[in-house]
Amino acid sequence: MNVTAIKDLLYKMADDLLIIGHRNSEWTGLGPILEEDIAFSSMAQDKIGQAGALFEILHELGEGEPDTVAFMRDANKMHCSQFVELPNGEYDFSIMRHFLFDHADQLRFEMLANSSFEPLAQVAKKIKGELKYHVFHANTWVVKLGNGSEESKARMQTALNESWNYALGMFEAGDFEKELQSENIFKGEEALKTRWMANITPFIEKANLKIPDQSTWEPILGGRKGYHTDYLQKLVEEMGEVFRLDPTAQW
């Protein structure tokens, strides 16, 4: 097994979940209605827990303690896509990102449930079922808001337009696509993107929204290689603030 390739894959997945999980948690106490407050808080808890399970596998492969790895790295050492680090913005953007991200992530774990790397396959079997609920939630709101008032429809279309190139950046090819595929560890970002398009399109149509014209597609890349927006460093500092005060403290 190509351990370097596996680690690369695990890091980007874990970082996506950790960062989107923290962004979700920023809605705690601020959700537009109580149920939505609870929904984003629950998804935050799920995602950070799932990130923890992946950091645990990395630890078994020789990487640092999960807490240390999660809270002590600076932005340039993180492998999340730039999409997940963007600030929450308003509810329209948060829901749209949630929709685009969770469809991709749920499919990713579905594909990984058959991975030849057994520890990841086991965790993926569990996580794909949990993410189903996140996807249900996102679908409901995208369709509801897309068919709501003129304002909600316009806001959702703007959110989709602004998200799109960042969303395409989620599928940035890694350095080990070939190795992962030839060893049946992961079918690769391109295969994932194709499935993602097929899954999101019917919901976008149901919401009466339009995917931006293909001539404008320009995936925003770099996140997987440690290039990020300035938002990420601020976020990791805030996230790790307490842990960094005394990394040896017992909780």
Binding site: E35, I38, S41, S42, E130, Y133, F136
Partner: peptide
């Protein structure tokens, strides 16, 4: 169903 999320991760409302 009001929401697939509840007071704990394993419950819906």
């Amino acid at each position: 169903m009001k929401t697939p999320f509840g007071p704990t991760l394993c419950r819906s409302m």
